[in-house]
Amino acid sequence: MLFCFLMGSGLNMMAQQIKTIPLWPGTVPGETSKQPYKMSADSSRSVHRIAEVTDPFISVYPAPLQVRKDVAVVICPGGGYSILAIDLEGTEIAKWFNSLGYTAFVLHYRVPKKELGALQDVQRAIRIAKSRAAEFGYNPDKVGLLGFSAGGSLSARASTLYEEQQYRPVDKADSVSCKPAFAMLIYPAYLDKGVNRALTPELKVNGATPPMFLFATADDQYSNSALVMAGALRDAKVPVELHFYSKGGHGYGLRPGNPAADVWPGLAQTWLKQFDTK
């Protein structure tokens, strides 16, 4: 029902033109050249997948003026750091955020298997989003993250490693902090690579880590990631909300016909309202 709304009348509110912003005006860190992104031939489950990104960028989905709130979200699609499920966990999510009044940025980070590049890309994306807040109409201190699966891993890394400069500054935008205001991790993966499936050592959770919303299901092979991250946030006294349902599996986005997809958007919407106040 929700997805039908987005594909139907809800899109009438979203006549704003989508703008694309390259992350790196010059050389991309660690890349020898910039090439147009390449799509995968695999479109199973009606999911469009990007197979290769060497010139990362963000697509801007401005919220309609009549419902616009002062919050923006950078969306990190999943795909195992190998592909980007760009519609299922990107553009469809951005349009849903627009329907709620939030400006959205879909991050096309580097793949395949470029975990450092992806972290550089998300840090740069947050800084660009903050530096252009006046242009798109939100508060630069209210730029958060939402990530699915590997994108949830990337969002967790960005939320805990924001004090570690991952690239040489490029321009004025890099003088801005890349710390997100909040993070929403939906069926996150790869957060439990520590000993005995403990929290991944790379993730530096402490009292300054931004608030998080986590959603996962017991029948998802990666669901321990949400549990260990929630535990680490709790222990550090960081505001955290965890929802752990029995069924839903992995990789459902907003699409109908999945019990988890039916419930997480409403829970996330309610949680996100705390950041709406002017």
Rank of each mutant, 00 (worst) to 15 (best):
R197Y: 15
L242R: 01
T209E: 05
V240I: 11
F213K: 03
F244N: 01
Q221M: 13
S223Y: 04
G207D: 13
A198W: 05
F244V: 05
V228S: 03
P211D: 05
K237Y: 08
V205P: 10
E241C: 06
D219A: 03
T200S: 15
T217R: 04
A236W: 05
N224L: 08
G194D: 03
T200D: 06
S225V: 11
T217L: 06
N196G: 10
V228K: 01
G207L: 10
P239N: 11
T209Q: 06
L242C: 04
M229N: 09
L233H: 02
L199A: 01
A218S: 13
K237V: 14
D219S: 04
D235T: 10
E241W: 09
A218H: 14
G207R: 13
A232Y: 06
T217H: 04
Q221F: 12
F215D: 03
L199R: 04
F215W: 10
F244I: 05
T200K: 04
L203Q: 00
L203H: 02
V238H: 08
P210G: 08
V195W: 08
A236L: 14
V240S: 07
A230S: 13
A216I: 00
Q221C: 09
Q221V: 13
P239E: 15
N224S: 11
A216L: 01
R197V: 05
D219C: 02
F215C: 07
A208N: 14
F244L: 14
L233T: 00
V195T: 11
V195H: 08
A218P: 09
G194K: 03
A216S: 09
V205H: 07
A226G: 07
A216Y: 00
V240E: 06
S223V: 03
L242P: 03
L203S: 02
G194L: 05
F215L: 06
A226P: 02
Q221S: 15
Q221N: 13
D219N: 02
A208P: 10
A236P: 11
F215G: 01
S225F: 10
L242T: 00
A218Q: 15
A236Y: 02
S223P: 03
R197I: 08
R197N: 14
L203V: 03
L214D: 02
S225H: 12
G231C: 11
D220H: 04
V228W: 00
A230W: 01
G194C: 07
T209D: 06
A208W: 12
L199T: 01
G194I: 04
T200M: 05
P211M: 11
F213I: 13
L203P: 00
P239C: 10
L214F: 10
R234C: 12
A218K: 14
V205L: 09
K237C: 13
M212S: 13
A216D: 02
D220M: 03
P211Y: 04
A230V: 03
V238Y: 10
K204P: 10
M212P: 08
L242G: 01
L227F: 08
F213G: 00
P239S: 12
N224Y: 08
T200H: 05
A198V: 07
A218C: 14
H243Y: 14
S223E: 02
Q221T: 09
M212N: 06
P211R: 02
L214W: 12
A216T: 00
E241T: 13
D235Y: 07
A236V: 10
L203G: 00
T200I: 10
V228F: 01
A226D: 01
K204L: 12
D219V: 03
P210C: 15
L214Y: 12
